[in-house]
């Protein structure tokens, strides 16, 4: 995130506030956050419990709106969009990966993969081909007709990653994506993220786990709804290597 970076900004917080009114109290879950995410970035968000990580992620994902401030996706302010238009932003620009995988249990892997395109009226031979390709990409070819329950946790999360890629999103949003997995599987999933990066995929993850965060390029530390610091993990690693 050097000043001279010429990669396009695909997601930008400009003095974002998110306040919850609880009776007389106002909880300032986000209290003036400004961040830029550029194409190809791999950003981890960390912070203590209650620091505002999930709130930030919800706004990044278009599931929630800022109380004030602007949130721009691909240069367009989406903070004031109505529900339908915001749904379109989610459907077209964002790929969600959840801690508990969140596959729809009664649907097959193929059908799960097609859900994002379904809501854009793009289900057909094309979407099937794409699902097959992405299933192969995450190492699950031949499992398209399985139900989620027939897959292991790691496999389910791979399906979820493939699903997040189906709509060619501007960026992937992962909320504790490895929180429900053992350390081996966690490593596999993180390796998969690394594999995807040469394709130009942008990734934002929220995590409590420093091991997970350090695989990202940068770590954004939140504290009490504000940016505490933005750490360049590569530089930190170099500093660590050469004391």
């Amino acid at each position: 995130m050097a000043a001279m970076d010429d990669r396009p900004v695909i997601a930008e917080f400009a003095d974002v506030h998110r306040h919850y009114v609880m009776g007389k109290n106002v909880v300032k879950a986000l209290n003036g956050v400004s961040v830029q995410v550029r194409k190809g970035d791999y950003l981890a968000i960390m912070g203590r419990s209650g620091s505002g990580k999930s709130t930030m992620l919800n706004i990044l994902g278009g599931l929630d709106r800022p109380t004030s401030g602007a949130y721009r996706v691909g240069g367009r302010d989406v903070s004031k969009l109505n529900d339908d238009d915001l749904s379109d932003v989610r459907g077209r620009e964002i790929g969600f990966i959840f801690q508990s995988f969140n596959l729809i249990p009664q649907l097959t892997v193929l059908e799960n993969l097609e859900v994002p395109l379904f809501y854009q009226g793009r289900v057909g031979a094309e979407s099937r081909k794409k699902a097959e390709y992405l299933a192969g990409r995450v190492g699950l070819s031949g499992r398209l007709e399985h139900k989620p329950m027939e897959l292991s946790g790691g496999q389910q999360q791979r399906v979820a990653i493939a699903r997040a890629l189906m709509n060619d999103p501007l960026f992937l949003l992962a909320d504790e994506a490895t929180g429900n997995l053992d350390s081996n599987t966690e490593k596999e999933i993180l390796d998969l993220f690394d594999d995807l990066r040469p394709d130009g995929v942008t990734i934002v993850i929220v995590t409590h786990n420093p091991k997970v965060a350090e695989r990202a390029d940068h770590t954004l530390w939140l504290k009490d709804g504000q940016v505490e610091k933005l750490v360049d993990n590569r530089a930190a690693a170099r500093d660590g290597d050469a004391p």
Binding site: S87, R90, F96, F98
Partner: peptide, 16 residues
């Protein structure tokens, strides 16, 4: 409820 949340996150509008 969760399925509804998932679908909404994946781009489903209210009408869907």
């Amino acid at each position: 409820t969760r399925e509804i949340g998932i679908r909404r996150a994946l781009g489903a509008k209210k009408k869907h």
